[in-house]
Amino acid sequence: MLDKIAGLGRVILDSIAGAGAALLMLLRALIGKPNIRKAWPLLMQQMYAVGVLSLIIIVVSGLFIGMVLGLQGYNILVDFGAEQSLGPMVALSLLRELGPVVTALLFAGRAGSSLTAEIGLMKATEQLSSLEMMGVDPLRRVIAPRFWAGFYSMPILALVFSAVGIFGGYLVGVRWLGVDDGAFWSVMQASVDWGQDIVNGIIKSLVFAFVVTWIALHKGYSCTPTSVGISRATTSTVVTASLAVLGLDFVLTALMFG
């Protein structure tokens, strides 16, 4: 019994120490003046790896989720003769929830896991130590550009997701099921608000971007540099980041729309 309590205590102490280390890593990586001339190409490279290469999965998922929303929404709304509300239903669910949240989950799986694995492998092959010994701070050289790339990419991806999703809902609702074209857009416009819905969605995805990228980078940076350690860290990135996104989504939703 005492052992179990001691075990619990150790878990708590470990997680506090882990959180502290993660915070320290981020502060050291981001504080200080960057050398623009050297940082810019690195940022571009990472934006490409993290953002551009995630675009395909985001567009395809967004399209399908929008189409499913169109189909399901139509089937429910048509019972009440309210199929003209399909537009706002699709748009609001995408802009407020599905856009930021699903993008963050896909991002954690696609880009987060690869960030963790890449940094873990750099650690295992002593590339990070090697940077340190060369007098190059790996936090500045490796962590910082990846963090900013993730932070800037995810809101863009979330916007693309929502836009493509609305288009998918339009394809199914208007082109296939025959909802009136004008009503679809005008009812949507009447109920979607710039500040309330779009800006709040962007704020959400900025928060998710911060958290997911941070978790992915810290898991990679602090992993045990062995093959088992890297695979654990990668799994842990996806699990932790997904749970963090869903939990934070509830909190943010409660604050914004509650």
């Binding site: 092959t125 002593e126 590339q127 130590s129 090697s130 010994m133 060369m134």
Partner: peptide, 8 residues
């Protein structure tokens, strides 16, 4: 400078 075992 340091030459790592793996080359790094």
């Amino acid at each position: 400078s340091m030459l790592f075992q793996s080359g790094a």
